[in-house]
Design a protein around this nucleic acid. Structure first.
Lengths: 234, 234
DNA sequence: GTTCTTGTGTAGCACCTGCTACAACCCCGT
DNA sequence: ACGGGGTTGTAGCAGGTGCTACACAAGAAC
């Protein structure tokens, strides 16, 4: 099935091969349904730094990331900020719309130029009711997210910043990294400030910990890439 | 509908009013279906300290907590231990069985004498396929869990133990507490060791932080209950 | 090139936390 | 009443972390 996104983005865009048309979640939908969903989906092109949605906004839409990378930031009552997750092309953002409450608990910030494909809650609910297997697929996806979040909770509970940082980097590498000869490789830049929001640690402490990890050989910096040699097994 | 659990547990048991028969998740099931599910469900009575399931065990069953309280513990590669969540009567445990992998990522420990009602993955999948709305309900539940976990990630990112502890207690109070005149009240005992596993902090640091919170008037200890006065609004 | 911005590295200090050790306490069963 | 196990509280020390301030490097904009 032809993907409308390609037509919109142009030929030069690096789109995720995953389109609503061939997305595994919708594998059981009938052709007419797919066409309908695909037609109604709202495409959006956003450049680096733009917000897909803002924490506190009413949540009635969910986004498939066609290209780019999105950071999920949460600001707490005391003003502290934290990055809960980083999503890549093929992932979702805004799945919180399933909950009844109706506001996004985080802000979605584009870390790169990004293209999204949006669906409303009602579109999804109709799809689930018509094709129960769609529901099962989503349930599995959400379960996996819970697993990831649990592991993230574990990372943050580590007292030592160095260990904490390494765990966070390992998670990022597993999610976004490609497995090279030397281990997992993170191919996009993460500033020390980014990492401080991911670990909940002070920026300067990150610099210290990074130096320690480099000296210990646990990470290798090349160009703008980061290599985690010890992660080859996991 | 009569609840088979009551017959099993006896009249004196303090059961959750929520039974598989009247559980909101299954509100749309036909009577025969309910009877079938209810009949096939495996009841289990466990005393304090017992394990419902163990981290690493193959996960093909999910448990509705009829009575009691269950702690979800995770042990990490480095040996450190952490309590990810506390579930009460009416909640689920083991929803990770939805993910494909097939092993529980945590251990479920009974904090009190507990009664559970177990369902297998296939039972659930059949129910979802037959009654799509069941799938929607589960999706919403899982979404809410993701929200909770996110807030937990935020709690653990706080550098100050005192703040971290207070956030953790607030979460527990919101989940398990009853709203009294003075604010939220936690009615079951939590040892400092329990709290250290919940916050990822040293036991002695918990004692220090508890003292500070008491002195600051943020928490009040009475008998075995804990009162959070400032949480009246949230 | 120059300037501005953003990111990185270093230094030093106050404070907090982890850790060990031990004392006091409470509850429970004998 | 008397132990005994588990829980809570106190003390002191070493080390790590947060924080501020500043110097330096890299890259973008002009």
């Amino acid at each position: 099935m032809a993907c409308l996104c390609e037509a919109m983005a142009g030929e030069d865009a690096h789109l995720s091969p995953i389109c609503i048309g061939n997305l595994w979640i919708f594998q059981d939908l009938e052709k007419e349904e797919l066409v309908a969903l695909s037609r109604d989906a709202k495409r959006q092109q956003l450049e680096k730094g733009a917000l897909v949605f803002r924490q506190g906004d009413p949540a009635d839409e969910m986004f498939l990331i066609k290209a780019g990378r999105i950071r999920l930031d949460k600001v707490f009552e005391d003003g502290s900020q934290l990055t809960l997750d980083i999503r890549k092309a093929g992932d979702f953002a805004g799945e919180n719309m399933f909950a009844e409450e109706g506001t996004y608990p985080v802000s979605a910030v584009c870390m790169e130029d990004t293209m999204t494909c949006g669906f409303t809650r009602s579109q999804f609910e109709q799809a689930v009711l018509a094709y129960p297997n769609v529901g099962l697929q989503i349930i599995k996806t959400l379960s996996q997210q819970i697993d990831q979040l649990s592991s993230r909770v574990g990372s943050l509970a580590t007292p030592s910043i160095e260990d904490r940082l390494f765990r966070v980097l390992s998670n990022v590498a597993r999610e976004h990294g490609k497995t090279g000869e030397q281990g997992h490789v993170i191919r996009f830049p993460l500033t020390h400030e980014d990492l401080s929001f991911l670990t909940g640690a002070h920026r300067v402490s990150i610099t210290r910990a990074m130096k320690a990890l480099k000296d210990a050989g646990k990470i290798i910096l090349e160009d703008k890439k980061m290599i985690l040699p010890q992660l080859s097994v996991a």
